[in-house]
Nucleic acid binder design. Structure first.
Lengths: 145, 145
DNA sequence: GTTAGTGCAAATCCTTTGCAAGCCG
DNA sequence: CGGCTTGCAAAGGATTTGCACTAAC
């Protein structure tokens, strides 16, 4: 059901290249944030990232966390979402089109393949749909993928 | 494509009854807000309602607008949504399950029948889905319904 | 040395809250 | 009177901004 995240656990060197390729300077703070967001975090909020950074990096200000996230989103390296169950924005390192399932039992967000949902364009004849955002609410019955 | 809103244009007396039936006291402020939200407004924000109220009611404070909206949502008389294209909450007098289409040309939100979207539960075998929130982004090619 | 990036604090936006005053039975 | 509603102003949380400071080419 979930989508594999093949980007998981890159080396710092690989992250540096990945940033450069997108035209983003690889500063120490950005590398640290990327390492967390790409390899360890699962749909983190800006605050989650700040908490992690405080424990794992000499010093990063909240403003830098936000700046970095916005930079990465603009560069297309990260996706930003906002769902009804929380006011906070969440960041997703999966930049392939996909949907989400919010597991109400564990409060975790799970990536869902786009094939799970079909939009009947025939019933929307007079509309030109570019993009769809879907979130499912429910619970996972078991952990098998 | 859109869903008909059969509740449109109730009299004050009808709104009063409708509130009472839901266990909500019909104060002057609440009646005014309901009249706007049910009859004239199209997916308004709290601010839209305040602006209308300032022009059409002796005095309503912003706090009362928010209090009233929360009361109506809790009573199940109104639905509250939050979409990625705006930080503000929007209120919908259509309390039947449905989805939305955001028309990027006019910045209007259009109700979409749930039949337009199919969730393939077979592909989500290990999940128990209770609810889905979907928003489509695109544009309307013509205004015929 | 410039230019980009950072840190801090203040500012902003939307929404909620505390509390005194008003209204209605 | 007594409880529910109101209005106001202050507080709150998330994110952004202004600006001086630092760092890196």
């Amino acid at each position: 059901m979930s989508i594999d995240k093949s980007k998981a656990c890159l080396t710092l060197g690989q992250i540096e290249e990945w940033l450069k390729k997108a035209g983003v300077n690889a500063t120490a703070q950005r590398l640290a944030i990327c390492q967390f967001v790409l390899c360890q975090a699962d749909h983190p909020t800006a605050d989650d990232i700040k908490v992690w950074a405080d424990d794992n990096f000499p010093k990063i200000s909240l403003a830098t966390v936000y700046n970095t996230l916005n930079t990465l989103v603009e560069a297309g390296l990260l996706r930003e979402y906002c769902f009804p169950h929380s006011e906070k924005k969440i960041y997703d390192n999966n930049i392939v089109d996909h949907y989400h399932l919010y597991d109400e039992a564990t409060h975790r967000l799970i990536d869902v393949s786009p094939e799970v949902v079909t939009v009947d364009h025939a019933k929307l004849k007079n509309a030109n749909i570019k993009r769809a955002d879907l979130i499912l609410y429910g619970s996972i019955l078991n952990e098998e993928k």
